[in-house]
């Protein structure tokens, strides 16, 4: 997982990630077209596939709309690094398989435009621009089980088959 970083601030809420005026559809492409629109109207013009969102505290606060992580994932963003995540966004990201990483140091020190690589095996974020490395806390075992099978519905299906 490697890409250019786009920095956002604290308390980015789901209304900014995907405004409610676009919630009359579940089409992932349509949702992606408006990703982050009320935080940065030009975001989708600038962001490239594989890029990474870096934000402050409480990313994804507000509404429970799963359209928010869906829009980010469908926009081709490879992952979100934040100081902390709001809890419903956090569980939605796990459930749909959007990679998220909680690392206050990385979120603080990574600058916009930095080239960042995320090494899942070593739970490490590598900033190739600044040459800094940051740790992130791996998920608890129970959540990893959901992530490893590609999300909650796959997990449910597997359990039913057992």
């Amino acid at each position: 997982m490697r890409g250019k970083c786009w920095k956002f601030w604290d308390n980015i809420n789901t209304d900014e990630i995907i405004p409610a005026r676009y919630l009359n559809t579940t089409d992932t492409k349509e949702l992606a077209a408006h990703c982050m629109e009320d935080a940065d109207p030009d975001f989708m013009k600038k962001a490239q596939k594989g890029d990474v969102i870096v934000a402050g505290d409480n990313f994804g606060c507000g509404s429970s709309r799963e359209h928010a992580p869906i829009a980010i994932k469908a926009a081709g963003i490879s992952g979100v690094i934040a100081k902390s995540f709001a809890r419903i966004f956090f569980r939605n990201a796990i459930n749909i398989g959007l990679p998220i990483f909680e690392s206050p140091e990385a979120a603080e020190q990574i600058q916009e435009g930095d080239e960042v690589e995320i090494d899942l095996a070593h739970a490490e974020i590598i900033d190739h621009t600044s040459k800094k490395r940051f740790r992130f806390e791996p998920f608890p075992q129970e959540m990893q089980e959901i992530i490893q099978v590609g999300g909650l519905m796959n997990f449910v299906k597997k359990r039913r088959e057992q």
Binding site: N92, N95, L152
Partner: peptide, 12 residues
Amino acid sequence: GVGSTDLAACFA
């Protein structure tokens, strides 16, 4: 509050 996938899993 949870998300839609949580709800789908709960339906099941």
